[in-house]
Design a protein around this nucleic acid. Structure first.
Lengths: 191, 191
DNA sequence: TTCATTATGTACTAGTAAGTACAGAACGCA
DNA sequence: TGCGTTCTGTACTTACTAGTACATAATGAA
């Protein structure tokens, strides 16, 4: 019926993610995405809308990836304590300079004062809420494991804070041993 | 001997700090700083150098302010545990949307992939190192307070991580009660 | 083969921001 | 008062970037 698209939108979102993650939203120009993806601007605009909309699509895709992985990790048939430790441990490469110093695209975006606040904050809020829900649900389900007075809701939030802190400090490329030591110490809150 | 400066550089750095903190480095134009301060661009360039240099001066000044306050708070003649709790508690207004949603200028800058990396990272690294040293020194000095096997070095780093996490999540304007609950739970690591 | 439709690539517009040239103003000193 | 020096404000240049107009290419259907 008409000329078909010459690129896979998902591939382009993947490339755009890398560029945005590396340089941040503001500092990334569409020309750079064009150069990296080989897709010209009019095609990008036709497929994704303007720069803000493209970034939101990239970010949502990023969120979905992490949430999917969190669901799988936290659903494992091991004690909650162990599942959560594995989940946190999985971030170590991103917290320690092993996979660059980019930290977390979502946190980097949240701390960027320049982004279109309304939509972006909604996306990040939704992501954080869902992540915290996963942690909370797991802690509640296994609450019998823990000592009396254990509060799964506060603990879920504390883990979110530690997670955010580790990824915010990732930009300093800390040694992975230190990251691991922090995770161990925080996990002792659950023992 | 010559025409005197018509503005106080420190006032301008203070104003520039507010603008940079509000909008981020990239999204802040020198025209905005000119508008906010009443100082024209050539004077800014003469006094501070280019935009990067201006930002570094603003950031160093910000760091010094927080370090000074941390020194005072942590030097108080109370148990280390209590001094650190007070230090963390002092950030609550900046962690909870009470004083806007700007979080911490240093963390916001660290997560911004677009900044001149060499100089900026050195400044932030130095700041974090000095802050962590203050915490570590205080914990070491009072280590007798804590249980056996207590590791002041790891604990100092964990507190840095929590601090960074709270300020990274500040952009979601969490309820100050939740922030306080997290601080309480983390402080229980020291009990 | 021809047409309607949708994608593509080139080349453009418009706007903005960093940085500066230059003329003139404000000072201390002689 | 006149001079050298340093600061100030206007107006500019240069460069980059978001977004788009338009001609053309590639498809399926008739």
């Amino acid at each position: 019926m008409a000329r078909p698209r010459s690129f896979d939108p998902d591939d382009v979102l993947e490339i755009a993610r890398q560029v945005f993650w590396q340089k941040g939203f503001q500092a990334t120009s569409l020309d750079e995405i064009t150069a990296a993806s080989g897709v010209a601007k009019p095609s990008l605009y036709a497929a994704f809308g303007d720069k803000n909309a493209l970034f939101l699509k990239v970010l949502d895709r990023y969120h979905d990836g992490i949430l999917g992985w969190a669901e799988r990790t936290l659903a494992q048939p091991v004690p909650a304590c162990e599942a959560i430790r594995q989940w946190l441990t999985g971030f170590i490469p991103y917290c320690s300079g092993e996979k660059g110093q980019r930290g977390c695209l979502s946190i980097n975006s949240a701390t960027d004062g320049s982004l279109d606040q309304a939509e972006l904050r909604k996306s990040i809020e939704r992501y954080n809420r869902r992540l915290e829900e996963l942690l909370r649900a797991r802690l509640r389900a296994d609450r019998a494991e823990f000592r009396k007075g254990f509060d799964p809701d506060v603990t879920a939030h504390t883990i979110m804070v530690v997670h955010a802190g580790l990824l915010a400090l990732a930009h300093q490329r800390p040694d992975s041993k230190r990251v691991k030591a922090v995770i161990d110490q925080v996990m002792s809150l659950l023992a």
